[in-house]
Design a protein around this nucleic acid. Structure first.
Lengths: 94, 94
DNA sequence: CAATTTTGGTTTATAAAATAAACTATATTA
DNA sequence: TAATATAGTTTATTTTATAAACCAAAATTG
């Protein structure tokens, strides 16, 4: 009862990022910024943290065009999210 | 979609405190410390924050015996918790 | 086409939060 | 009665979140 809450996911912005990514194959920086309403700086930092933890995979494209940063969940990230959700349930009347 | 998460409740320890209090009429400091495994200092600080926000009501008894700090949810606190749970659902596959 | 603005970010500085360590006062025990 | 334990609070430290300042390339404008 009252399981540990993965601190990497227990943060509003990172949870939002992961929650969005769980629903799609992949999403880019601009999409995430618009959906989360975060500032670019904040989003950049949090994407890095998720990436360093290997919860998401980040591809930085530079194809003559403007840069494009594409994110997607890793298997490890999906597992972590599922664990987080289970852990959360121990706190909630669900 | 992706509702605001009340920062006062989106904290593992405070969420634990509130989650425990939601299940009972009242609980004292020692009970909360044992259940949450928090240090007394940390627990004390977080109880203060919840109390200052009027999410919980705190009674400090000094009846010749050792001190006894009793906490219980306020109506406002219950409402806040319910809102928080609803908001969380926008992030989760529930 | 040169200057300006916009886009898509990163880096760094600041503010806020969580947490533990140090401390206090009373009570209990040896 | 001296030592220890209990029930906390206060303060200092570490960590985290967040925004502001910055940068390079692309698009726009006059």
């Amino acid at each position: 009862m009252l399981a540990e809450l993965d601190p990497l996911l227990h943060s509003q912005l990172r949870l939002a990022i992961v929650s969005l990514l769980m629903g799609v194959e992949e999403a880019d920086f601009v999409f995430l910024r618009e959906k989360t309403q975060a500032t670019a700086g904040n989003l950049s930092v949090q994407i890095d943290k998720l990436s360093n933890a290997n919860y998401i995979e980040v591809l930085k494209l530079q194809s003559g065009k403007r840069p494009r940063t594409i994110c997607r969940m890793t298997r490890e990230g999906r597992k972590a999210f599922e664990n987080y959700v289970e852990a959360l349930k121990s706190y909630l009347p669900i």
